[in-house]
Amino acid sequence: MDHVELAMVLAVDGSASVTYDEFGLIARGMATALRDPAVAAGLTGRSVLALLLWSGAGQQDIITGWTLITTAADLAAFADGVDNMPRTVKAGNTAIGEALLASLTLLAHAPAIPGRSIVDVIGDGRSNDGIAPGPVRDRMAAADITINGLCILHEEPDLLTSYTNDVIGGPGAFAVTCRDYRDFTEAMRQKLTREVKFPIV
């Protein structure tokens, strides 16, 4: 099996708190951030990426399976898929623990051995369904998997506290925030730029 520097799961909130317009802003913002030259330089030739959409318990869907990013064209195609991702999960509750479990399963089937494994949890609300995220986070952190967060604060101004206590963990873990979806693209760009640095600081 080949080795890569980074395996990353982009785990996106598709719960009821995210309107369809907001979901479109997430998709476009993520795609724009992935196309940023600094991000692209850090991912190309050294990473595998996957896109997971999640909502309530039992509502997790792999939108794009593991994609080996060896060329700029590979990343561009992956970003196009993010830009146009369908909303395939029921817009229900917010089951972050279930999303983490789905991400862990994805990582167990990565097509290459990564030097680092990162799960990006992107959402606008605290977990309120399914298994608690904390114990899953602890299990993943113990396996040297990093869980980072991007908290959209428009409905829950204290969401960062919840993510810090219950979601993020592992080597170099951090969370970033944006006040609203209008600020999402830049927050995502900053987050990815930080993540693709070697090593994370």
Rank of each mutant, 00 (worst) to 15 (best):
T161N: 15
P111N: 15
L75P: 01
P171R: 15
A108C: 04
D129W: 08
A141S: 11
V89N: 07
L150E: 10
L160T: 02
D144G: 03
A95L: 05
I145C: 15
L104I: 05
A99G: 04
D61G: 02
D83N: 02
A57I: 08
T88H: 14
T185L: 02
T64F: 02
W66L: 12
M140L: 15
M140S: 15
D83Q: 10
A143C: 09
S127D: 14
G169F: 01
G115I: 01
H154T: 02
I131G: 01
L100V: 11
L159N: 11
R139A: 14
A50W: 01
P135I: 10
G130T: 11
G169V: 01
D74G: 04
L104G: 11
I118W: 10
D138Y: 03
H109W: 13
R126L: 05
D138V: 02
E98S: 09
N128C: 04
M85D: 00
R194P: 08
A79E: 05
V121F: 01
G56L: 14
L104A: 09
D158G: 09
N93R: 12
T88Y: 13
Q59E: 08
G125K: 10
G56A: 14
M140K: 15
N148I: 10
F184P: 04
E98T: 10
D80I: 03
H109S: 15
R116V: 06
I122F: 01
V82C: 09
L192A: 12
V176M: 13
I96Q: 08
C151L: 03
D183E: 05
F78D: 06
T71G: 07
G97Y: 10
R182D: 06
I131M: 06
N148E: 07
A79H: 03
I145Y: 14
I69V: 08
L51H: 08
K90C: 03
S55M: 14
S117M: 07
V167N: 01
C151D: 01
T88P: 08
L68E: 12
Y163P: 00
W54S: 14
N93K: 07
G56T: 14
V167F: 00
Y163Q: 00
G56R: 14
A143W: 09
P111T: 14
L104M: 08
A73S: 13
R137A: 06
D129K: 11
D166T: 06
V121C: 04
A187W: 00
S162N: 11
A102K: 02
I63C: 06
V82K: 11
N84F: 05
Q60Y: 03
G134T: 10
R46A: 07
I96E: 12
P135S: 11
G65D: 07
L150N: 13
G123I: 09
L53F: 02
T193V: 13
D74Q: 06
I118L: 13
P171M: 13
A50N: 01
R116Q: 09
A102W: 01
L101Y: 10
G125N: 11
E156Y: 14
A95G: 05
A132G: 09
N84C: 02
L75K: 04
Q190M: 07
D61A: 08
G169I: 01
Y163D: 00
P157F: 09
I145E: 15
D138W: 01
L51D: 07
M188T: 06
E156K: 13
